[in-house]
Design a protein around this nucleic acid. Structure first.
Lengths: 408, 408
DNA sequence: TCCCTTCCTTTCCGTTGTCAAGAAAGTATT
DNA sequence: AATACTTTCTTGACAACGGAAAGGAAGGGA
């Protein structure tokens, strides 16, 4: 074991009951799966798996399935998560609004909503999230009864342990103890995570990460972001600033970026950057991205060129990422994908040209991003903490003092 | 715990006795350290540390030190590794020669040597390493008696588990079961690792990684390489191809690289690339790197410009790396550092301009690389496996059947 | 029906790490 | 000098955990 700096004061093992966590993880990610398969997958003995599963079934988290026959011998009994057993709320906070979802224990969205935030101030946001959570949980009685966890996704650097938003250029906030504030206000155990990272966690548990523990998520939209899952672990970096794909330089001396540099990927391939490119090339200005996409599809030269340029820049940036950390898969996501037909050609081409390994060593996936996906990511972070934490019926804190905190 | 793909069939825990490994690791990396401090550092109880340490002392791996007094209460008893208890051999294999060292248990080089390889063929290399190992172990009787491990560093992609060199463009080898071959020929338990990764392992256990588990190693020389240690783990990538800093593009459309692309960092900042730059700019051609450095220092314009350009490219590449994985430290090393006075100015400047975080969030360290450092890295890999493996007096295999395998 | 195969469960056991109490080895105080 | 105090290390009882092996359990095939 490598030298350890962080003393995770937890108990006997680094993670409270690693075994339980990996068995649980296998059931969540590998769908219906028999005990014997879990044993093979995790390297645990069958006996251990049986014992680990028992309390999960007792707690109603996991159930046996009428199963498959087929082969010789005693048929395996597939196990699956009970989706209705417990829910989690995920909220994505932006300047203007908070979007929230309720997800079930299988990571599926079962309810959604949003509230407008009147001002981009912390108290307003906290109050807005509180309203949103309350509204979401009110939708069904089982939500109120079986929801104990809240995940919050924000753009910016986050201190996971202290549940503090360290700095968010987008929101203009700094050192906000969001987690604590929301725990007090909602009565739910709260985790705070960077928005792109949250998306990656959702992929890890319910998407591409189910198969492969090496992947990257790249988001296109108002900015360009990325998150890295390497060897099964989400990478935060020494200062929580890993994955700043948007601010690597792909056109030295290129257009000014809001970060102060020139030629950042974000200064070329983000939506505002594409619009600016079009205006600079003599195209219309003041249009929105849909209009730009329309123009480009219709063959308008400035618009088309701007998207091509963005695709090349993205391909270059992603190839750089691939050369440095060698993920097996790269998921492209974000609102910017509405233009994927315009972007992907030049993107793939540039990517293939610039990776050291043959391009087919990487799986480049585009994933359309419904508006609530960010919130779902936040919820996935909350779920992860349930899956990997100790198996307790009720959460640690006296959360459901309910009325007192959720009613005015 | 995140979903696990690899079933590490090991035993109860993921790593055979995690506790022992982390206690051992604390003693190795944190120098003389008292039991109580180890407990704090690792999160284990004092009792556990006491019990874990006992067999190490019994085996002679660890010893108590006459200790420090000072504070109130019973004085702590510092523990330290016994450097002479066991040795390991590390060998770096290149086209022309094999360089080897013997390191003691504290990672210090205690002997060194090299053999010329007549041809760049596998059998010749294996025979050469065998000769080298034999020669090194013959230097002192305690080497022969207490050396059971060999680390081999090579340029190229390595399959650690199967101990196979998958592909080495430099050596022109492919799918060579180096580990097995050398285990048979030397009688030593053998590990094979990529050369830059090996350097990173040495840093992790005996260098900058002792303090901080997030760092990168960048090597300058005939090529440009890098290795990443993130969250205390050396990153190999999904296909073992992580850390290809040399082949990220920093000058789009720039000079042709041997990998086939244009403008790779390696095509600008490696030693051959710098020499080519000088020649292109009308400077002398056919000179070696020392001469080029001399020219540049003397103010020769083409030479000076070439080094500046390399510095800028390196700064850009390293900034990209920093933005993507956010290491706390970046160690610059390699033969190319002979020109550090020429490179570092423009390198630091470009780096500072291009990182999203303020540049002082990163520690940029240059580390002169004695010729044997590569071999020492290889030995560090072997040591790591001792430190993290089970505590056994003699290795698993019947290694020291000695004479039969080491004599002709 | 009997056997065979495969999956799951149970029992027993060794290992591991904690807790709590206590011994050890110093300094500070009277 | 004697005593108290403080901190470090050790010891022993104990519970949790995971594996091995043997024992069902649940099907298919002859």
């Amino acid at each position: 074991m490598a030298p350890r700096q962080t003393a995770d004061r937890e108990g006997p093992y680094v993670l409270r009951d690693r075994t339980r966590a990996s068995v649980f993880g296998a059931i969540v990610t590998k769908g219906p799966i028999a005990r014997s398969e879990i044993a093979q997958l995790t390297g645990l003995s069958q006996a251990t798996v049986t014992k680990a599963v028992a309390p999960m079934i007792a707690a109603g988290y996991v159930a046996e399935q009428e199963g498959s026959s087929g082969g010789r011998g005693r048929p395996r009994v597939p196990l699956h998560i009970c989706p209705e057993r417990r829910f989690a709320v995920g909220v994505k906070v932006t300047e203007r609004e908070a979007v929230g979802v309720v997800v079930d224990f299988a990571g599926r969205v079962v309810a959604g909503g949003r509230v407008r935030l009147e001002s981009p101030e912390v108290p307003e946001a906290v109050a807005g999230v509180r309203r949103l959570v309350r509204q979401l949980l009110a939708e069904k009685p089982e939500f109120r009864e079986r929801t104990f966890d809240l995940g919050v996704a924000v753009g910016g650097a986050v201190d996971l342990d202290r549940k503090v938003l360290r700095a968010s250029p987008i929101l203009g906030w700094q050192d906000v103890p969001l987690g604590t504030l929301l725990e007090e206000r909602t009565g739910l155990r709260t985790v705070v995570e960077n928005d792109v990272n949250a998306l990656a966690v959702a992929e890890q548990w319910f998407g591409v990460g189910v198969d492969v523990p090496w992947f990257a998520v790249v988001t296109l939209g108002a900015g360009v972001g990325s998150a890295l899952v390497l060897d099964g672990k989400l990478m935060h970096g020494a200062r929580g600033a890993a994955g700043e794909l948007g601010h690597i330089v792909v056109e030295p001396g290129g257009r000014q970026c809001r970060c102060g540099n020139r030629g950042c990927l974000e200064a070329i391939a983000s939506e505002p950057a594409i619009l600016a490119s079009i205006a600079e090339a003599g195209g219309p200005s003041g249009i929105d991205i849909e209009a730009a996409v329309g123009l480009a599809r219709a063959g308008d030269a400035p618009a088309f060129t701007a998207f091509m340029r963005a695709g090349v820049a993205l391909g270059a940036g992603i190839a750089t990422l691939a050369n440095l950390v060698n993920p097996a898969r790269i998921v492209l996501s974000g609102e910017g994908l509405v233009a994927s037909d315009l972007l992907m050609g030049s993107l793939r081409e540039t990517f293939a040209a610039r990776t050291l390994l043959p391009a087919d060593a990487y799986e480049l996936i585009t994933r359309p991003l419904p508006d609530e996906a960010w919130a779902r990511g936040a919820a996935a972070v909350a779920l992860r903490d349930i899956f990997t934490g100790p198996l307790e019926e009720s959460p640690n804190r006296p959360l459901r003092g309910a009325g007192s905190s959720l009613t005015p």
